[in-house]
C-alpha cells in the first residue's frame, strides 16, 4: 500500500542524506555514533531470517541487505573520521554521551517478556523492534545538548522519523484490508513516533520555514 511504500522510501532517503552529509562535508558533527551502532544491531538482529532463506519477496530481501550494508558502512565512515578529521571525531565523541546500556538492558528484557514465540529468531526480532523504537535517543540527546544542528542532519532525523510514522497508517490499512494486527510492531512504532514528536514540532516550526534548527 501507498503508506508502506512512502515509508520505505523515506527510510531510504534518510540513509542517502546521512551518507551524503558524511561524504560531502567530510565531518560528522552532530551525528551520534552510538545511534548508528544501535541501528547496525537493530538490522542485524531483525533480518536474521535472511539466513533461513524463506524470503518474502525480492523487494524485501534487497531492502534488508541494503539496510544492513549501509548501516555498517555509516559506522565505518564515521570511524574513518578518526584519521581524516580527528577534530570533528573528538568533538562528536565529546557530545555523544548517552549511556546505551540503559537502552540495551531494558530492550533485552522486554524482548523476553513480549514476543510471538520463544525461539532465537523471534526473540532477536522482538529485541530489534524494541531497540529500534529507542535507537534515536542518543542522537536526540546529542541534539538537545548542543542546541543546534546542521540542516542536513535535521533532514536526516526527520526522514528517519517519518518512516516509522508512515508505518502507522500502513498498519491501519492492513488491519482493514487483511485483518492483520501486529501488536508488537504497532506498539513500538507508536512509541518511536512519540519520541520524535518534539523534534517534528521544532522541525516544522523552524526548518520548514527556512530558519535554522535551533532549540528554544
Amino acid at each position: 500500500n501507498i503508506f508502506r511504500i512512502l515509508a520505505d522510501l523515506s527510510h531510504l532517503a534518510s540513509i542517502v542524506i546521512l551518507l551524503e552529509t558524511i561524504r560531502k562535508a567530510r565531518q560528522i558533527d552532530g551525528i551520534s555514533l552510538k545511534t548508528q551502532i544501535l541501528y547496525v544491531l537493530v538490522f542485524c538482529t531483525r533480518y536474521l531470517d535472511l539466513l533461513t532463506f524463506r524470503w518474502t519477496s525480492l523487494y524485501n530481501t534487497l531492502m534488508k541487505f541494503f539496510f544492513i550494508g549501509t548501516s555498517v558502512y555509516v559506522v565505518k565512515l564515521m570511524q574513518d573520521c578518526k584519521l581524516t578529521n580527528p577534530v570533528s571525531y573528538k568533538d562528536m565523541m565529546f557530545r555523544d554521551t548517552f549511556q546505551i546500556k540503559y537502552l540495551l538492558g531494558p530492550c533485552a528484557l522486554l524482548a523476553l517478556v513480549f514476543n510471538y514465540k520463544f525461539t532465537v529468531l523471534e526473540l532477536c526480532w522482538s529485541f530489534s523492534i524494541w531497540l529500534e523504537s529507542v535507537a534515536i535517543l542518543p542522537q536526540l540527546f546529542m541534539l538537545s545538548r548542543s542546541g543546534k544542528a546542521s540542516t542536513l542532519t535535521t533532514h536526516y532525523i526527520f526522514a528517519l522519523g517519518l518512516y516509522r510514522a508512515l508505518y502507522i497508517p500502513n498498519w491501519i490499512w492492513r488491519y482493514y484490508s487483511e485483518n492483520r494486527l501486529e501488536k508488537l510492531s504497532i506498539f513500538t512504532g507508536l512509541l518511536q513516533t512519540a519520541l520524535y514528536s518534539d523534534f517534528f514540532y521544532i522541525y516544522y516550526r523552524k526548518v520548514m520555514k527556512g530558519r535554522g534548527f535551533e532549540l528554544p
Binding site: T56, S57, M63, F67, W125, N179, R180, K183
Partner: peptide
C-alpha cells in the same frame, strides 16, 4: 484478527 508470524515488513 490474526497475528502472523511472518515478518514481511522492514
Amino acid at each position: 484478527t490474526t497475528t502472523p508470524l511472518e515478518h514481511d515488513e522492514l
